[in-house]
Amino acid sequence: MMFRLMMCREITKLMSQRLDAPLGTKDRLLLRMHIGMCGACRECSEQFELLHIAGEKYQELTLATDETNGPNRAPE
């Protein structure tokens, strides 16, 4: 049981790193294999991806709002 928990913790770190930069071949393979076997990590990975997408969309909307309002206009 302890080995699996440590693996899940390491896999969670890889999930996060994957969203910021491409993983190496070894890490990508470890992540794919673990997610294929571990339902909890598979669900966690899906949630990480949704949060990442939501963050990107929020940033796009914030930038679009800033461009629309300009530097001296107050938001309506």
Rank of each mutant, 00 (worst) to 15 (best):
E67S: 01
M2G: 02
S16W: 09
L50P: 08
A21D: 02
Y58K: 12
D27L: 00
N69C: 04
R4P: 06
M33G: 03
L61Y: 02
Q59T: 13
D27M: 01
K13R: 09
A74P: 06
F48S: 08
E60S: 07
R18E: 08
G39K: 11
Q59E: 05
L5C: 12
A74M: 07
R73D: 08
A21F: 03
T65H: 08
T68V: 05
G36P: 09
M15Q: 13
L51H: 13
R18M: 07
L14V: 00
E43D: 11
H52K: 00
L31H: 00
L61G: 01
L29I: 06
C8V: 02
A21H: 00
L31V: 00
A40E: 15
A64Y: 03
E56R: 10
R42W: 09
L30I: 07
L5H: 14
L30C: 09
D66I: 13
E46L: 13
G39Y: 03
T25M: 05
R9G: 15
R4N: 14
I11G: 11
E43L: 12
A21R: 06
C38M: 01
I11K: 05
M15Y: 09
E46D: 14
Q59K: 14
L14N: 02
A74T: 08
F3V: 13
G70D: 00
L63R: 09
C8E: 02
L29P: 01
A54H: 12
T62P: 02
M7A: 14
P75H: 01
R42P: 06
C44Q: 12
S16R: 14
L63H: 07
L19W: 03
C41G: 01
S45L: 09
K26D: 06
C41D: 04
C44S: 11
R42I: 05
L61P: 01
C38A: 09
A54N: 15
L23T: 01
L29W: 04
N69K: 11
T25H: 07
L50A: 15
E67K: 11
T25W: 07
E10D: 13
L31W: 01
E56W: 13
M15H: 04
Y58D: 11
R28I: 01
Y58E: 11
Q59R: 15
G70K: 01
P71D: 06
A40M: 04
L29N: 05
M37L: 10
H34M: 01
A21P: 00
T62C: 00
R9V: 13
R18I: 02
L19Y: 04
T68P: 00
D20P: 06
Q17C: 02
R73Y: 02
D66Q: 00
M15I: 04
G55R: 01
P22D: 12
Q47K: 14
I35W: 07
T12I: 11
D66A: 14
M15N: 06
K57G: 08
